[in-house]
Simulated scan of single mutants.
Amino acid sequence: MAAALLARVFSSLPRPRYILSATCPVDKWFSKYVSSDNRPKKPLSAYLRFFVDQQPIYRKQNPGLGILDITRKIAFDWKELPSSAKQTYETAAEAEMQLYKEQLAKYKAQLTPAQEKALKEEKMQKMEKRRANIKKRKLAMLGKPKRPRSALNIFVAEHFQEAKGVSPQGKLKYLFDEWKKMPTSLKQAYLQLAEDDKVRYKNEITSWEEHMKEIGHEDLVRYKSKRQILTERTKK
């Protein structure tokens, strides 16, 4: 449990860059660590070029407006902009798009089948991560109850501020060590709080899921096994 929590903390730290050594074949290294970061960047559209040009001006002229209001104003002005004025942005966008297509063709031509497969997998992972983030925000907006905390989580949260250690990782390590040395009798209070939190979560998630069914969000309800469904039917 402690190792899992520590792993989550360290996973948020920047990962070291891979260094290509003289003994590592270039093709093998690239096929393993190839990234879409090397792919040519798609140029801005004509409207986005106009937006980038105008946003600093609008913000300076309207210091009291929020970003959404400024965005709406720029979008409205672009819509009302004469075709002759739009032509400058459209011509630049078309020229860069042509250059982008040429660079993209060269980029794809140098890829091996293994590298293409690696890039496709990376793209799928990014899409899955994006979908997961969208779902996470959706659940937060719909007020999904927070999962129950473990006894160790509660202990760490309660003593994190006064824990010894310069960095967050140092504080966590100190608290993990303290938790391991703590007698079971002293841990009992945290174990009881964890049990109470499980009961809280069970009650809240059941009520929340019933509400999700009522408002048409059955997709957000936890998956139930056939055994669970049969047990519920038997009880009814």
Rank of each mutant, 00 (worst) to 15 (best):
M1E: 07
M1N: 04
A4Q: 12
L5P: 00
L6W: 06
A7D: 12
R8E: 09
S12D: 08
Y18K: 15
Y18M: 11
I19D: 09
S21W: 11
T23W: 09
P25N: 07
P25R: 08
D27T: 12
D27R: 13
K28W: 09
W29S: 02
W29C: 03
S31R: 02
S36Y: 04
D37F: 02
N38P: 02
K41Q: 14
K41W: 03
L44C: 07
D53L: 09
P56M: 11
R59K: 14
Q61N: 14
Q61C: 08
N62A: 06
G66N: 14
I67Q: 11
T71A: 15
T71E: 09
R72F: 06
R72A: 12
R72Q: 13
R72E: 11
A75F: 00
A75C: 02
A75G: 04
D77W: 03
W78P: 02
E80P: 00
P82G: 08
S83G: 15
T88D: 09
T88G: 06
T88S: 12
Y89W: 10
E90P: 00
T91L: 09
A92D: 06
A93L: 04
Q98L: 04
Q98Y: 01
E102V: 10
Q103T: 05
L104P: 00
K106D: 13
Y107R: 01
Y107Q: 01
K108E: 13
K108M: 07
A109K: 11
L111K: 02
K117R: 12
K117V: 01
E122F: 00
K123W: 02
K126T: 07
R130T: 10
R130E: 15
R131V: 06
A132I: 03
A132T: 09
N133L: 11
K135V: 09
L139F: 05
L139W: 07
M141G: 07
M141Q: 15
K144D: 01
K144S: 05
K144N: 03
K146D: 08
K146P: 02
R149V: 00
R149S: 06
R149C: 04
A151P: 10
L152G: 00
N153Y: 04
I154H: 05
I154R: 06
A157Q: 14
F160A: 03
Q161V: 14
E162W: 07
G165M: 05
P168E: 05
P168F: 12
Q169I: 10
Q169Y: 12
Q169H: 12
K171L: 05
Y174G: 00
L175G: 01
F176E: 06
D177A: 13
D177M: 11
D177S: 15
E178W: 07
M182A: 03
P183L: 04
T184E: 15
K187T: 04
A189V: 09
Y190Q: 02
Y190D: 00
L191C: 03
Q192E: 10
Q192K: 13
Q192W: 01
A194S: 14
E195Q: 14
E195K: 15
K198Y: 09
V199D: 10
Y201T: 03
Y201M: 06
K202S: 10
E204C: 08
E204S: 13
W208T: 01
E209N: 04
E210P: 03
H211N: 12
M212N: 06
K224T: 05
S225E: 05
S225C: 03
K226C: 02
L230G: 00
E232Q: 07
T234S: 04
K236F: 07
K236Q: 10
